[in-house]
Write a protein that binds this DNA or RNA. Sequence first.
DNA 1: CCGAAATGTCTATTAATGTAGACAACCATA
DNA 2: TATGGTTGTCTACATTAATAGACATTTCGG
Lengths: 245, 245
Amino acid sequence: MVQKKMVERQIGVALWRQIADRIRLSISNGDYDKTGMVPPEIKLASQFGVNRHTVRSALASLADEGLVEAIQGRGTMVRRKERLSFPISRRTRLSQGLSNQVRNIRSILLAHDELPATSEIAAALNLPLGTPLIRMDTTSAADDRPVSYATSYFPAARFPDMAEHFGRLGSITKSFAAHGLPDYIRISTEIIARHADADELATLKLSAGAIVLETVAVNADPDGVPVQFSRSRFAADRVTLKLET
Amino acid sequence: MVQKKMVERQIGVALWRQIADRIRLSISNGDYDKTGMVPPEIKLASQFGVNRHTVRSALASLADEGLVEAIQGRGTMVRRKERLSFPISRRTRLSQGLSNQVRNIRSILLAHDELPATSEIAAALNLPLGTPLIRMDTTSAADDRPVSYATSYFPAARFPDMAEHFGRLGSITKSFAAHGLPDYIRISTEIIARHADADELATLKLSAGAIVLETVAVNADPDGVPVQFSRSRFAADRVTLKLET
DNA sequence: CCGAAATGTCTATTAATGTAGACAACCATA
DNA sequence: TATGGTTGTCTACATTAATAGACATTTCGG
């Protein structure tokens, strides 16, 4: 049988990478759940219409990610297949939404500083241009696998100790609470997809060439006053964004 | 000045493609709006830390997409920069949401057939396994640029003439109305990002290696009875999904 | 109308990617 | 324990991607 969806040449994406992406997708789709094994290299090679060595490069890259493990004489085993489902709702709370999917979630403050609002952020937060903001770069890992990398901005006047609190509490929700804001809602979200840049590859521990889902969101207090502007990047092959209504 | 976000080697994605992706992003971010020109090749080459010829390959690919145009002696001009903002809400209506962003929207029925419900779709639509469904493949273009490619499933018993209506009306909303359903709401949406397959590349007229945003949604009538299961794919570099609450 | 700055074209070379084939090592099982 | 099916390793070669440099061509401003 000839594979319907062949791999493509001369598009600036190496064949082994295209094949690795396709196998990764098959794994997360559960295509190999019956046996728990990836098809033999020779079979994959003929399906994709490439040489066996090219398939081996793809599998090597997946093995490097920890997704599969090859065993000489037996075959190549699927080791991991999760794709986290990431809820997005008016009350999006990272830890809460993932808590029933993973054992532990850890958020880390990578960096923080104070800077004046740019026009984009000032408009989103409904603040005058140049208003002082706290900026925080944070990353979250589920069961020690990085899933998100976010840059958040908060009005410095209202939330002067955001970074300190986050560093201690590891949670935006708790940091807001420490500033006397017990609840907040999401008032807008935009989503795009693109290739990860070097910074994101490193932070999210992605194999290069990977895709990120980027959400740009504004959160507000119960009175509708914006309190947070954030850009979050998710490893596209590890998460599904699930909108809740 | 050295560019902070360098380009990466040996990752299975050709440098010219990484650079093309980055320039495309800069264009849609409006980075070149002031002059309407992409920086000179030599400057780009030094910023990305590559040879000028590599930058030329990237620009040639963008020119091929119609995004830029090089003029000897002058420079390289931005020709197009749009990124459509695609609203997703409980009452998502394609034509309505885009109407103030483009001049015309055209939807086409590519194919349709009838088939029994698979377990995934049966569960989503709350129907018994094997229930007859109408399947429709449709594509939409905004100002003659393809933006979405969707496969939708409807219960055949309730909406027997969905495909005929759509072929004539070019709208899901109107086709539902023709079946006596004036309103419907979205009850779930999931979003993932991945590389486009060959079929999607062709239908969405993407340059190969491109990324698609895929939404999997279930729509229901006002009583909450599911009426549509759909898988839509968007050209990631042409749209932003905008969640509305 | 000259010169600076930009893109266009050509040649040559090196590095990365992909193909081809042979054979070793290992595993399961008949 | 022999056999078939699998992954691991090696060599050789072809094709594509990237670098390097030289110079032509075009545009624009002084």
